[in-house]
Amino acid sequence: MATSLPIHPKNSISKEVLENYKAAGVDLTPYTGQELHDFRYELKEERAGRPLTAVLFEQDGKIVASHVVLPDASPGIFPIDDREGAMQGGE
């Protein structure tokens, strides 16, 4: 599923959310004021009986950022290339 995600101060992505993404290793701040599309993919890996989700951010046909969403974890997002951290995150 793809959705449009404008990255600017007056939308649903607040400065706090951008800072949380950045702290988790996913820096979207270079795209402030621009529009990204996000694509979500349910993964085969599970945690607590629920599947993980991969999220890819695309702009002009190129993937510019990505992360994995973990159900029941805090912070709940990890860089997509940190498989070990993602599988152990929040434990």
Score class of each variant (00 low, 15 high):
Met1Ser: 13
Ala2His: 13
Ala2Ile: 14
Ala2Asp: 14
Leu5Gly: 02
Pro6Met: 04
Ile13Leu: 09
Ser14Leu: 02
Ser14Arg: 01
Glu16Val: 02
Val17Gln: 15
Leu18Tyr: 04
Leu18His: 02
Leu18Gln: 04
Leu18Lys: 03
Asn20Leu: 08
Asn20Tyr: 00
Tyr21Pro: 07
Tyr21Arg: 10
Val26Leu: 06
Leu28Thr: 05
Thr29Met: 08
Thr29Pro: 00
Pro30Phe: 08
Tyr31Gly: 08
Thr32Leu: 13
Gly33Ala: 05
Gln34Tyr: 12
Glu35Trp: 14
His37Pro: 09
Asp38Lys: 11
Asp38Pro: 07
Tyr41Leu: 12
Tyr41Ser: 15
Tyr41Lys: 15
Glu42Arg: 10
Glu42His: 00
Glu42Cys: 06
Leu43Arg: 06
Gly49Asn: 00
Gly49Phe: 03
Gly49His: 00
Arg50Lys: 12
Pro51Arg: 05
Leu52Asp: 01
Ala54Leu: 14
Leu56Met: 13
Phe57Tyr: 11
Glu58Ile: 15
Glu58Leu: 14
Glu58Ala: 14
Asp60Arg: 13
Gly61Leu: 12
Gly61Val: 15
Lys62Ala: 12
Lys62Met: 15
Val64Leu: 09
Ala65Leu: 07
Ala65His: 04
Ser66Trp: 01
His67Leu: 12
Val68Met: 10
Leu70Glu: 03
Pro75Gly: 06
Asp81Lys: 11
Asp82Gln: 12
Asp82Asn: 14
Arg83Thr: 10
Gly85Cys: 09
Gly90Met: 02
